[in-house]
């Protein structure tokens, strides 16, 4: 039979640049916000204008940077632990059904406990240092990673299982050759959720009580009615979360690409 030359060109066309649209929407939103504050003459301690927020961001940059570093440190430490544990438990739950049956409900329960209760408890038990913050971040990030990974690892594919079995693959080989690669996209979507949780998680736990960090800085800004500083704080949190998200996307692309030519 002749070669079919007209195949394989499907993914060559470029996706249209839709990325610009959210930027435009955001820009319009910021402009409206500025206009609204100017027109209605809203007091800055109630709602600061975007310009005031950016001014605060600039004026307070030194302090903001020190606090940001503390928060980022806690978030990354917690995230790192959560990733390692999430992958390990994801694999265990995906491979051994009894482990899954035993642990899954427990993990779900941990997610139903309000963080706002846990954070002060940890502060009481462990003080105001880094450790309670890291534990909170781990608690928040572990769940999406392990659960999405497990879900994709156990996604049934009877045909593939049968083919592999006939080829002589045992449980572990099937798992390694078919299940894990197939579940990587699930793992990465879990990671994307987790990284956006990590910064927020650290901030919330600082909020309850800390010496340094964006969370405690926020409460100070609030109690002294420096609303613009509060907003500047939020801007930093958004930028950090987006940056981590983007980083996961880049790693995902690299990994899937490397997977292609096994």
């Amino acid at each position: 039979m002749k070669k079919l030359k007209n195949t394989g060109q499907k993914n060559k066309y470029k996706e249209p640049g839709l990325g610009i649209i959210p930027v435009v929407i955001l820009g319009i939103f910021v402009l409206l916000w500025q206009a609204l504050v100017d027109l209605l003459k809203i007091q800055p301690f109630i709602l600061p204008s975007p310009i005031k927020v950016f001014k605060a961001l600039y004026d307070e940059r030194r302090l903001l940077l020190t606090h940001t570093l503390v928060t980022v440190g806690e978030a990354l430490a917690g995230l790192g632990i959560a990733i390692v544990l999430g992958i390990i438990f994801g694999l265990l739950m995906g491979y051994y059904k009894p482990v899954r049956v035993a642990l899954y409900p427990v993990f779900v329960i941990t997610q139903t406990i309000p963080l706002i209760i846990l954070a002060p408890l940890f502060a009481v038990w462990l003080g105001f240092g880094f450790l309670p913050k890291i534990i909170i971040v781990v608690l928040m990030c572990f769940f999406p990673i392990s659960v999405t990974f497990t879900q994709d690892l156990i996604k049934p594919d009877e045909d593939m299982d049968n083919i592999l079995k006939v080829m002589g693959a045992g449980k572990w080989k099937s798992f390694r050759l078919a299940r894990i690669p197939q579940a990587l996209s699930g793992l990465f979507s879990g990671l994307k959720i987790a990284v956006t949780y990590s910064i927020t998680g650290a901030v919330i736990s600082e909020w309850i009580g800390a010496k340094e960090g964006l969370g405690i800085y926020m409460t100070r800004a609030m109690t002294s009615f420096k609303t613009a500083v509060l907003f500047a704080d939020v801007v930093i949190i958004i930028v950090l979360s987006l940056a981590l998200y983007k980083l996961v996307e880049i790693i995902e692309k690299k990994v899937t690409k490397n997977l292609e030519y096994v």
């Binding site: 049968n162 083919i163 080829m167 050759l177 997977l259």
Partner: peptide, 24 residues
């Protein structure tokens, strides 16, 4: 053994898909 569904692994190249029985 072969089914209606090709059961090729989408992340593998054609060659490494074909060589799967030998790899196993």
């Amino acid at each position: 053994y072969m089914l209606q569904k090709d059961c090729l692994m989408p992340w593998r190249s054609l060659l490494s898909n074909v060589l799967l029985p030998i790899e196993i």
